[in-house]
Design a protein around this nucleic acid. Structure first.
Lengths: 276, 276
DNA sequence: ACAAATTGTCTTATATAATGGACAGATATC
DNA sequence: GATATCTGTCCATTATATAAGACAATTTGT
């Protein structure tokens, strides 16, 4: 590949004069955090050399860290080239997370049911790392070329669910929360933060949100909220439907969504009072 | 506080000779690995103080590490007391693992189908950390008080699946792999390693395995293998059925399992040749 | 066939992360 | 209400993990 790559402008804070000699040392755990984030972005196994380049970390350091992580089952080594990817332990930890949040588990089942019974693509969405994130998805019957696999992250202003997920934030909080660059939709003119804040407010008033052709020009996105016991929006259910879906069908799907969301909202998140 | 869990006798190695001087310093990442393992064992949120005690780590160190991990979404803080547990990022990484191993995903769906169509409790089991581990489970219709939640780990010799999962190891490898203390079943006389090796060999010959009352005195365990393209056993499907299940029903369930396992074994684990 | 790039392992130095302890504010316990 | 036990933050010290480079064994490209 590229033999050199000047480490694109020394990410992080190199310190104004740190250039003197050796780049600053980084904590192993911080590198691991970045490593995980990178694997998640890339979405497939990565060689250690490539990892070192991508994280601008010394190879010798990465070999050590990867050894520890693979021994722990947090990473696994695949292929003859020794590429690494998320390991079995992370699967189990993810299942632990799911068990602790049983709303999520029930919502996943509901997404499957919605997709099966309506034939449309249904999703469960949550807020993660200041982005709209697909927590679960069940493909509909139509052959859709959807970009919405589980784990995909999309700027909040591009989505209907994003408006609902920010319902509980004040205008100032939204301003501080949404990265400015996220206001530019993939195609079309950028949106002002003020307009987006107003859109969030309207989504809250209505209790649902429908957008057209925002992330994909040929789809509508229909979203409804799931609340926790305190009434805050913790997740959304949504349908992604073809652009030519008739209005009354969209209304019907919306109502289906609202019903499902309401049912999911009722059940307590876990054993109510924490007995002990 | 919680006098629960006998702490499994000080796992890990404190260092072959570390006893000599004051407790040696430990790498942050190593502590995190232990932290994750501990949370998984305990299975519910744990306060930082308790964590420090359980891992015999300094509190000040843990506060630092937990801060980093929660900022990264690997842990999350719940409750007014600030207990921590696995965070959303781990859920997403777990989903990434699942996507990378689509056999697992298909096997999960199959377990659901088996449980639905037979009414029995079905499981998907894998080898993890030298233990038999429940990777997925779908409860049957009978009201079972099963201890087999997802993530539960059981000594290999206590299970039918354990015998299949070790099919590809030589006698010596098995001897080295199975912790000696795992040979003691929960009730009844301990098994010799030799007897267990023979049981593994027989499971391989038969292509399935049925055990009675091993982990639970009132159940049978019926297990069948899932192979990878090289013929190695990568996972098992199994039914957990009541002790009074008639023999012919058990045979039928076994055949169902073998068929499912065979179908799952056929499909390639991912895109075959890695096009590049 | 050679040359160029890559992988994985080692070794040394030094920047720094882990540590233990002190601390104030909260909670629980008596 | 007094006492004990918690939680969370901050500091100075020092053991050590990170970084950098050299190395042989591969793999890759021409």
């Amino acid at each position: 590949m590229k033999p050199d790559i000047p480490a694109v402008s020394e990410r992080g804070e190199p310190g104004p004069n740190a250039s003197a000699r050796g780049a600053s040392r980084e904590r192993g755990l911080d590198r691991v955090v970045e490593l995980f984030a990178h694997l998640h972005r890339v979405g497939h196994p990565v060689g250690i050399g490539d990892l070192a380049r991508a994280l601008s970390a010394p190879r010798s350091t990465l070999y050590g860290l990867v050894r520890i992580l693979t021994d722990a089952g947090l990473l696994e080594s695949v292929g003859p080239r020794g590429e690494v990817f998320f390991g079995k332990s992370l699967y189990f930890y993810g299942m632990d997370f799911l068990r602790e949040h049983d709303v999520l588990g029930r919502a996943r089942a509901e997404v499957d049911r919605l997709a099966r019974e309506t034939g449309e693509t249904a999703q469960l969405c949550v807020l993660h790392e200041r982005k709209y994130s697909v927590a679960y998805m069940s493909a509909g019957r139509r052959p859709f070329r959807i970009s919405s696999e589980i784990g995909v992250q999309i700027p909040l202003p591009w989505t209907a669910s994003g408006r609902l997920l920010l319902s509980d934030l004040s205008a100032d909080e939204i301003r501080a929360f949404v990265p400015p660059e996220d206001l530019h939709p993939p195609r079309g003119a950028p949106m002002t933060i003020g307009a987006f804040i107003e859109a969030v407010a309207e989504a809250r008033r209505q209790g649902f949100c429908i957008t057209s052709g925002l992330v994909d020009p040929f789809t509508h996105c229909i979203a409804g909220p799931i609340h926790d016991r305190l009434g805050r929006v913790t997740a959304t259910l949504c349908f992604v439907v073809a652009f030519d879906t008739p209005p009354e069908r969209i209304k019907a799907l919306r109502d289906t969504l609202l019903t499902s969301g309401h049912v999911l909202s009722l059940a307590p998140d876990r054993e109510p009072p924490r007995s002990l």
